[in-house]
Design a protein around this nucleic acid. Structure first.
Length: 212
DNA sequence: GCAGTCAACTGGATAA
DNA sequence: TTATCCAGTTGACTGC
């Protein structure tokens, strides 16, 4: 609990709003947190420090070995576990993830009652459920943005191609216009009056009617 | 070693 | 005031 000792020396200076928030969040969490906060942490004067300490303390409660981390509920608040000070990463089990995913499919947000029920069911803290939903929404949004981006890229490519094609046509028309009239006009007429399918000249009247 | 993933955190905004 | 959301960030972990 090094931070609490450090922080406690100047509690009057910088008690900001984040402490209130930290306390709120921490109190939503495990009993381990409640212990920390009621034991002089609010005097630390540094919201971040307080919170970091809480996290480390929290994880320090955990028995971390081959078993995946899933719950901090039953931990005893042994301060000596926190020696390393490093935050340990929780990995949700397949079952936990699957259930959370299912709930997310039903609804991307979760109300407090559902949150607590789910926390109880999964043996997690309500705060963890809340965070999971937040992160999940962020992931969904990111994925959607990637899809949108890809779509826009394709649109852009298509428009570029079309633009290039139109430029080319414009160049041809300009070239045609710039050419001397006695050569260009009959040539153009020839082109227009030759049937592109059979190559014959000037049968447009009858054949076209037939085609229609 | 490094990039990617993801749980957790921070701080601002907002609704009730 | 409080709870919740979001965007951005951090740090542990993993696979290559």
């Amino acid at each position: 609990m090094a931070i609490s000792q450090e922080g406690a020396c100047d509690m009057s200076l910088s008690l900001d709003l984040s402490i209130g928030r930290s306390r709120r969040r921490a109190e939503q969490s495990s009993p381990c947190f409640a212990f920390s906060l009621s034991d002089g942490f609010e005097a630390a004067g540094d919201g971040v420090s307080v919170k970091r300490e809480i996290v480390n303390h929290d994880v320090g409660c955990e028995e971390v070995d081959t078993e995946r981390l899933s719950s901090f509920r039953s931990c005893g608040s042994d301060e000596d576990d926190d020696v390393g000070g490093a935050r340990k990463k929780l990995r949700l089990t397949k079952e936990q993830s699957a259930l959370l995913e299912n709930r997310f499919k039903e609804h991307s947000t979760i109300n407090p009652r559902q949150k607590h029920a789910l926390a109880e069911q999964l043996n997690l803290r309500p705060r963890q459920i809340e965070v999971w939903f937040q992160n999940r929404r962020a992931r969904t949004k990111l994925k959607q943005m990637e899809v949108d981006c890809e779509f826009l890229k394709k649109c852009c490519q298509k428009l570029s191609d079309e633009n290039r094609k139109l430029h080319k046509e414009l160049q041809q028309i300009k070239a045609l216009k710039a050419a001397p009239p006695h050569t260009s006009f009959p040539a153009a007429v020839n082109l227009l009056t030759i049937c592109p399918s059979c190559g014959r000249r000037d049968h447009s009247g009858t054949d076209q009617k037939e085609a229609i």
